[in-house]
Design a protein around this nucleic acid. Structure first.
Lengths: 348, 348
DNA sequence: CTGAAAGCGCTTACAG
DNA sequence: CTGAAAGCGCTTACAG
């Protein structure tokens, strides 16, 4: 059995022992103004004697009106959000940059819990700002709660609202670029594997609004593209969607997926049918994740997730400093070895 | 440009408007004691008029001596920790269970930052407890800091210290079980792909102490096993480690990897050499993650990550309620299709 | 450089 | 059921 925890002392206890004013002791720990060395030492010594753990963050935060905590909203369950390396890379950039500004990241999974439940949980947590780095649907009750608390909100396009700062990427233009690339290679019969949640669910909520933009951009170039919606944005989701294509014996020379993970699934599916990429069917993705184990490289829209995370972090710190402004995130069309001109004779 | 944020009101403002005592208004929001309906309504109305966002969590937490925030320590960068589905599943279970107890998860990445830097960041954050769900090395400075703050600590074996509660799994026994399984199938020439960080680094820190236990358990059954250390616990790391085996033309009939991800890499490497699993070389992993896209199933030690996360969460809430005790996490040897008897004649 | 006072925004006994 | 008071553990002007 582990040892029980000893009682926790406060700055008051330290002060009693060191025989200094509490205001002076406070300065020793914050370092905000100079303290004579002997005094400083007396305080530090008393603190050491008591095993004082430093000023209670709850108390100093209350005073300073800032908790140092940034909420990060993850749509659905963590396992779903974080199974995508792209999401993790955004989070990584976010954590790194925010950490440098000594702020911590608090995960807010939307998982299971009803709207009221989610609000109740959030209400108890001190938050300086909340970030929606992964897009997706956010319950209006939660949004309303955060608004009431006057918490700066930063998103990547969604939720759409005037009071949410956005780092926008131009999903539509990016999707158009991929489509145009395929078109320029000579493809005419193409399929688009769409992210799940593009259509309103039973409650009328669109889970992945960015999917709509991506689809719209793609259809600008290929109005007749075959659109299939994947069950989930994963390799399996892409595989399964691609299989549907084969079983309906559609004839396409290229498949564009709205995420790299789904694109990988499509490549596997093509291979499983004895065909190859890009010789028989070209495949393009979207996001720009590392896929070291893929044979060749994927043609995709590189969004540089880490940089995206860093920019979001920057928007947060700026907003807390008083500068609230939207930004634009650029993308790059990366031409990999997964796309090429279509074969002379298209096949089933 | 987004609209600027309006000023935030306090309970005092609401009270002035509703003409009630502040203590009464507090009860309306906490619901801890009954308030007459008309009074209640007056308060709520005033709150609505002012767009009051509810009691400031910082203030109520200070009073109640609890922040509702549980720190989760991730070794290294988030991208590394979270690229393993097993780590994510633990986190998922943790978040779910902790969420039900209305506590939030704060990510504490060890990334880059020096020890002092890490402590400084942590010092500013209100934490009810800290969890080390992924094992691994924790800087003694950080540990010391948390100790001073009298924060309950929960780990999965590491860091080893009397004041850290542990959910232990018996890594050694689990590794022995895998080894015994291979032995019983008839294997005699085997290789072990070891997790990185099993050996002390330049600073003398062991990054993955559990690797030591796993290796020890394995060697109990196969004292002469060929041990190779992977560069990282990923599919690529396993692939590369397995390749080294081939290039040194070692002859083994089975490869055991200390993580499923590395096992998958080994399978790929074997396939790349024109051999197959388990016909030519058996492969076993460890952890028990979902690998739906693997052909067949992996023989492994199933640790049920989500359940592990839930148990850790339970230990945290128990500790906060005053019951501090270690627990044991069970494992299951799952026999998949990746292991079988060795071929009649072993090959290079 | 140091100290006494006020206050951050709440909640919790305690009277009534 | 409601209110006045004390206090959670600090930090920040303000004097000295």
């Amino acid at each position: 059995m582990p040892a029980p925890l000893e009682p926790r002392y406060t700055l008051k206890d330290v002060v009693d022992r060191a025989r200094v004013a509490i205001s002076t002791a406070s300065l020793v720990f914050s370092g905000k103004r100079p303290v004579a060395e002997p005094t400083r030492e007396r305080v530090l010594e008393a603190a050491a004697d008591l095993d004082y753990g430093g000023p209670n963050p709850l108390a100093s935060s209350l005073q300073q009106g800032r908790s140092g905590i940034i909420g990060v909203f993850a749509k659905g369950r963590l396992m779903n959000s974080f199974s995508d390396p792209f999401a993790v890379s955004i989070l990584d950039g976010l954590a790194q940059h925010l950490g440098q500004n000594s702020a911590g990241i608090l995960l807010m999974p939307a998982q299971g819990a009803g709207q009221d439940e989610l609000v109740r949980r959030t209400a108890g947590i001190p938050l300086d700002a909340v970030v929606f780095p992964l897009g997706g649907y956010v319950s209006s009750a939660l949004l309303e709660h955060l608004r009431h608390r006057r918490i700066p909100l930063v998103g990547t396009g969604y939720p759409e609202a005037d009071d949410v700062l956005h780092l926008r990427m131009g999903e539509r233009g990016a999707a158009r670029a991929i489509a145009q690339h395929l078109y320029d290679l000579g493809h005419r019969d193409v399929a688009l594997i769409q992210l799940p949640g593009a259509k309103p669910n039973a409650q009328g909520d669109v889970m992945n609004p960015e999917a709509l933009d991506r689809t719209a951009g793609f259809l600008e170039v290929f109005p007749d593209a075959l659109v299939i919606t994947a069950g989930e944005s994963s390799s399996e989701g892409g595989y399964e969607a691609s299989e549907r294509l084969f079983s309906d014996s559609h004839s396409v020379t290229a498949i564009a997926a709205q995420s790299d993970l789904m694109a990988v699934g499509a490549v596997r599916s093509i291979r499983a049918h004895g065909l190859s990429t890009p010789a028989d069917i070209s495949v393009a993705g979207s996001d720009g994740i590392d896929l070291p184990w893929l044979v060749g490289t994927l043609t995709t829209i590189d969004q540089r997730g880490q940089e995206k995370g860093r920019t979001i972090a920057d928007m947060v710190t700026s907003a807390l400093a008083g500068t609230r402004e939207n930004r634009e995130h650029s993308f790059t069309l990366v031409q990999g070895t997964s796309t090429d001109a279509p074969p002379q004779h298209a096949h089933a």
